[in-house]
């Protein structure tokens, strides 16, 4: 076990920003995606683990905070010099004499940016700069807090592909906070779902999908025609413009697919849709609270 959290509470004034009552563990090699709307407590959780914010409760780890690496949501550096010198100072090495660093710079296509000052870098270049520094830390546990926020689709996709490729077959444990579910599909194998400072659920993606969505889910546009086709099937909570049918068995899935194909209806089938997990986990928690 790399890290465990027990009875964690973080308060900002009178407001409870985070309250984790059930024990939560991070195992070595875990890739945990943290999801939740704004104010859910995602960044607060990272800050607590890193010792950046006061909390009550217990966070147990054999790692010291400085042995964990983190890409914060906002990363700023001095603008008094080109980023090359910042990089060399932070890493305590010269770029010219460090093959691993050169490899990373080349991997993230950052060579042409080294002579620029930080404020002159584009959003994507800024993110890549911090990612290179974070990766060079070679930490056992690395946090990425909304690493692609504010980037355009293409840059975001390219960056996540690079991250996925880099960490493939590496033993590092990752905690990735993101609002983009497709990124977590690529990077995470576990999910921590937070809502209003509380843990809704935590577990492997597949297990959570099965728990909240069933075997598979078929999603179509939410229109009168499609609603009539899927009338007799169990519906899942979904965004207002979509209609999601839960399929508990392969036969049921084939039946729904056939029906939609016969009627020339576009649909998406998934057995790992994180958005559906998130929406239905929240809906389930809301239902539980209402019944109480």
């Amino acid at each position: 076990m790399l890290l465990s959290i027990q009875n964690l509470t973080v308060r900002y004034g009178q407001e409870t920003a985070l309250s984790i009552t059930e024990p939560l563990q991070v195992e070595e090699g875990d890739r945990i995606g943290v999801i939740g709307s704004n104010g859910a407590g995602k960044t607060t959780l990272i800050k607590s683990i890193l010792g950046l914010t006061p909390y009550q409760g217990m966070i147990k780890t054999r790692l010291r905070p400085e042995e964990m690496a983190v890409h914060m949501q906002f990363n700023e550096y001095t603008d008094a010099m080109p980023v090359k010198y910042i990089m060399e100072a932070i890493l305590g090495t010269r770029i010219a004499g460090n093959a691993r660093l050169q490899e990373l710079i080349s991997y993230f296509e950052f060579e042409d940016c080294l002579r620029k000052k930080y404020t002159k870098l584009s959003g994507g270049q800024k993110q890549r700069f911090t990612i290179i520094l974070v990766m060079m830390q070679n930490a056992e546990l690395t946090f990425y807090d909304e690493v692609t926020s504010g980037l355009d689709f293409e840059t975001r996709q390219k960056l996540v592909e690079k991250l996925t490729e880099w960490y493939r077959d590496k033993p590092a444990s990752l905690v990735i906070v993101s609002h983009y579910y497709e990124e977590l599909e690529m990077l995470a194998d576990k999910l921590l779902i937070l809502d209003k400072g509380k843990v809704i659920d935590y577990g492997r993606k597949e297990d959570l999908f099965r728990k909240y969505c069933g075997r598979a889910v078929i999603v179509t546009d939410n229109c009168e025609r499609n609603r009539s086709f899927l009338e007799k099937y169990k519906k899942l909570a979904s965004p207002a413009h979509l209609l999601a049918a839960a399929c508990e068995t392969q036969e049921q899935e084939e039946q729904v697919s056939r029906l939609l194909l016969q009627n020339n209806v576009n649909y998406k089938r998934s057995n790992s849709d994180i958005e559906m997990i998130y929406i239905n986990a929240r809906a389930s928690r809301a239902g539980e609270e209402e019944s109480k």
Partner: peptide
């Protein structure tokens, strides 16, 4: 990272001087 063990490094000193 190497500079963790040393208080003064050429890179850090150069960085702070540029600052």
């Amino acid at each position: 990272m190497r500079n963790r063990k040393r208080l003064i490094t050429a890179q850090m000193l150069s960085f702070e001087f540029r600052n």
